[in-house]
Nucleic acid binder design. Structure first.
Length: 261
DNA sequence: ATGGTCGTGTGACGA
């Protein structure tokens, strides 16, 4: 059995202490981070290694984006795709000793206007998802897990108000179509919703909301998927809402799942 | 309809 977590950390250097706290309190075997906002060589690894996280694969760039997989178990880096050729550090993949491949993804946010003719970033987001779809259609992943900040809340109960968010980037029908096309192409199963099929689930609350907890205007942007061949081994999914209230916290909280593999 | 808050790195830009 191993436990895995995904967390958009919004600067791994500013929040090194919060990563250490999560590793100490929850001790996942693998932690996937997004928005590290750091070149790989400047990621502060020492404190993570001191807790047993001796292995890391990462893609980084100065100031923006960046993904990293921290692990107690050895990792073999197997890919780092630049979907849509944006030149961004948004994907890295690694294989665990048991053969399971973990994809860590940070899908572009897509800007504010949900129209690619008015907003180039929205088009890039859709193109990014289309290239992900094509990649998984061609590679037919098996014994694989995909996690990350996918920047889309696909279900009505993944947002605080479905009707109000239908024209808001992250919950528009065209984004959900693209999201579902990626899932279908790789035969991915939504592990979080397999474990917690009913009720509202959020993993992100905006910094701009004056009282995130009482207002609770959240969205489920962070996901854990597994290919169908191993999805039945997944269990114990959790979204760690209290982490949003940690001092100088990220706007995202960690999402956990365990696998009997 | 608008503005609200962060992080990076010092002026906007991205989220």
């Amino acid at each position: 059995m191993f436990t895995l977590a995904t967390w958009n950390i919004n600067s791994v250097r500013l929040r090194e202490g919060l990563v250490i706290r999560l590793l100490q309190e929850e001790a996942p075997d693998v932690l996937c981070l997004q928005e590290c906002k750091s070149p790989v060589e400047l990621i502060p690894r020492e404190g993570f290694a001191a807790l047993g996280y001796h292995h890391m694969v990462a893609r980084g760039q100065k100031g923006y984006n960046g993904v990293a997989i921290l692990s107690k178990l050895p990792l073999e880096e197997v890919a780092g795709h630049d979907f849509a050729s944006l030149g961004h550090a948004r994907h890295v993949a690694a294989r665990l000793p048991n053969g399971v491949v973990i994809h860590n993804c940070y899908v572009p946010a897509g800007g504010d206007i949900p129209d690619r003719t008015q907003n180039e970033k929205f088009g890039q987001k859709l193109d990014y998802l289309t290239e992900m779809r094509d990649h998984f259609r061609d590679s037919l992943p098996q014994r694989s897990i995909l996690v990350g900040d996918l920047n889309i809340a696909p279900r009505e109960d993944d947002v605080w108000n479905h009707k109000q968010l239908l024209k808001i980037v992250s919950h528009t029908p065209i984004e959900v179509e693209h999201f579902n096309a990626v899932m279908e192409a790789g035969d991915w199963v939504d592990v979080t919703r397999q474990d917690i099929p009913e009720g509202r689930l959020y993993s992100w609350w905006s910094y701009r909301s004056p009282d995130w907890d009482a207002g609770d205007k959240g969205r489920r942007l962070d996901h854990v998927w597994a290919t169908k061949d191993i999805a039945a081994s997944a269990h114990g999914s959790r979204i760690l809402r209290p982490v949003r209230g940690w001092e100088q916290g990220s706007d995202h909280v960690p999402v956990f799942a365990s696998f009997d593999l």
